[in-house]
Design a binder for these strands. Structure first.
Lengths: 358, 358
DNA sequence: AGACCTCGTGTGAACGGTCACATTGCGAGC
DNA sequence: GCTCGCAATGTGACCGTTCACACGAGGTCT
């Protein structure tokens, strides 16, 4: 019924293009039994060809394959999922999927999943409240996902997830340190220490840290890395400022900080906030890095073209996505390679950092 | 193992009435028939409750609902899809999903689809070659999607899609002008004309256009808008430069252009390239907008914090995504509202444009 | 030479929903 | 009073695939 309606509509809309006189197309799409009939075998033999079962005579197999091609047979995923109770679908629960990092990871996850014959279905959550998370998760679960990737790295999300008792294998793209089995991440602490050490080695002693939102796991890890490294060099620290990842926040935080100006460098927890900071610093008539050094985190593609080009810490989001799927499939499918373990980020020195001014 | 499972099951079923207080929960998830048995109705009645069929006694309905809640019954999507041959899944075929625009649209599409009870499954294509597109499409089709959204707005993609004769309703997020029925877009031409007019009104007469890749539909539309507006004001034009959307390209193009420097303004087809251009201009010791004005396109969230803050044209990607689903569901589901028609972008004037220097 | 295994194939029953149709009561119309 | 229609519910088939099991042919072991 619905199909007819759609067909009519198509015809009405594009009279020039679609003709589609090719297929006999009487009624339903060809099934395994149609193939079987034409190939002169049983439906089970066709099924065996589909799942390339070893014990099947090559010539029989070829005959079946030929008929499949002729009929343009396509296996019905729903039927298969019903009987095997395996959907071959990985769900992604993601916050802030419009940002470069998450988006890159999602793309990599999709590619890796597809290569392994899995589908990917996403659910975005706008806010991190329990309701929104539960809704997203319910949506994915209703679909019968086999594995779950969580790219909403707020502590709150974790807690909510823990309460919801997920019944599928899952991976989170950030590490709380608590749930070692499920987590996968770029080593945020190491990256933050690199960034901090870089500033210290340039002679800076009054360094601020513009952190991410308090309840983000990455933000916390970077903050910890910062504090540890500062401590290791006996440099006194001030309390980090808690931001929201946006360039807007960086700008306003910068304006605020400059009213006092008791620092020579700022380590921003991501590149966007660093951009906002630099904006504020320029507005105040100061020069980077002569007056103030800025270092970011992520290395988004634009960072090289900021003014000045931003020194930052590069994360390999794509590798993260790939490993994520490998880990998940390791649970789902013991054959897949397992490369658990953290990925080490890389310090990218550009022009926004320089020797300490005073 | 399997045999044991079956045996257990047989035993569990044979004794009259379940002795276990709560739920045996051994093995499979509860089905419609489990619910039926405990509620003392037929499986069909349960099905009617699920699809809230009108003619069912309220008290019967309530009883069924109670049992469902108790058993934590969840309908099996695969079974439903199998029998109705409707997957309730929308596929997204997307290139460059890591960029702000596409990512925003994807998020909006997912939200809108979910609100209408649909799932979203994505396939990313890295390159625009026919093979990659066909693979992505095949992947989505194998899943039995009911509708398709294409956010890979290269002309090439369109041609490939046309050849592949898509058998589901689809929408493309950009307009070729040719396939009016399927396309949905922000009015790129209008946006480009706004941007160009802005520069002309500031007195610029030597304006370059840094366009996007030749085969992108948006790029072409913006270029056309630029040329039209220039023509309307009798301003002579030079051939647009064809870029690749990246800040890197903008930077190198800028360096190249500055060797001649026969212009006072550049209209960049997106914000990233504008960023690269500004980088190159600063490197050459020039000041924006005193020496050269720059205008971008998209209004990515960072644009307000570029140096100088970028004048650009804002596109409402989220609205685009929402309408996209509405359009698709209009095909799928005649009840949904239909708001076809283009979305008008908005000129955002910041500090990267100013009066012509000479 | 019979027992036994393996290969290649077929048969019928699931899986968990929906659909078409059958079957009850029960009030209304003639 | 008897039929008719409708509301509320039940019965069995079916969607397209895989699974468990059966079966014949041929080879190997004892």
């Amino acid at each position: 019924m619905g199909g007819d309606g759609v067909c009519d509509r198509e015809h009405a809309e594009s009279p020039i293009e679609v003709a589609v006189p090719e297929e006999p197309q009487r009624g339903r799409a060809p099934s395994i039994r149609d193939v079987a009939r034409l190939a002169g075998v049983s439906h089970q033999t066709v099924s065996r060809v589909l799942n390339n079962h070893p014990s099947i005579r090559p010539e029989t197999k070829q005959r079946v394959l030929d008929v499949m091609a002729e009929l343009q047979y396509k296996p019905n995923r729903a039927a298969r999922a019903l009987v095997t109770s395996r959907s071959r679908t990985i769900g992604i629960l993601s916050a802030s999927s419009t940002q470069y990092g998450p988006a890159s990871s999602i793309a990599a996850i999709e590619a890796a999943a597809r290569a392994s014959g899995y589908w990917v279905s996403t659910a975005n959550i706008e806010s991190s409240d329990a309701r929104s998370i539960a809704d997203g998760l319910a949506h994915l679960r209703a679909q019968g996902i086999e594995g779950l990737v969580v790219i909403a790295p707020q502590v709150r999300v974790f807690d909510t997830l823990a309460q919801l008792s997920i019944d599928v294998p899952y991976v989170t793209l950030q590490s709380t340190g608590r749930d070692a089995g499920h987590a996968l991440s770029v080593d945020q602490m190491a990256g933050a220490r690199m960034a901090t050490r870089h500033l210290i080695e340039l002679g800076h002693r009054n360094i601020y840290h513009l952190a991410g939102p308090q309840d983000w796991i990455e933000a916390e890890a970077r903050m910890r890395g910062f504090l540890d490294e500062m401590g290791a060099h006996d440099v006194p620290t001030t309390a980090p400022i808690l931001g929201d990842w946006t360039a807007d926040f960086g700008y306003y935080a910068g304006r605020e900080l400059l009213t006092v100006r008791d620092f020579t460098a700022i380590f921003s927890s991501n590149d966007q906030m660093a951009l906002g900071l630099m904006h504020a610093i320029r507005d105040a008539g100061l020069e980077i890095p002569r007056d103030i050094s800025i270092i970011g985190f992520d290395d988004i593609p634009e960072a090289a073209h900021f003014w000045p080009p931003l020194t930052t810490v590069r994360q390999d989001f794509a590798e993260l996505g790939r490993r994520c799927v490998a880990l998940l499939l390791g649970d789902l499918d013991p054959a897949a390679p397992d490369y658990r373990g953290t990925i080490v980020p890389e310090l990218i020195v550009r022009a926004s950092t320089g020797p300490a001014a005073f």
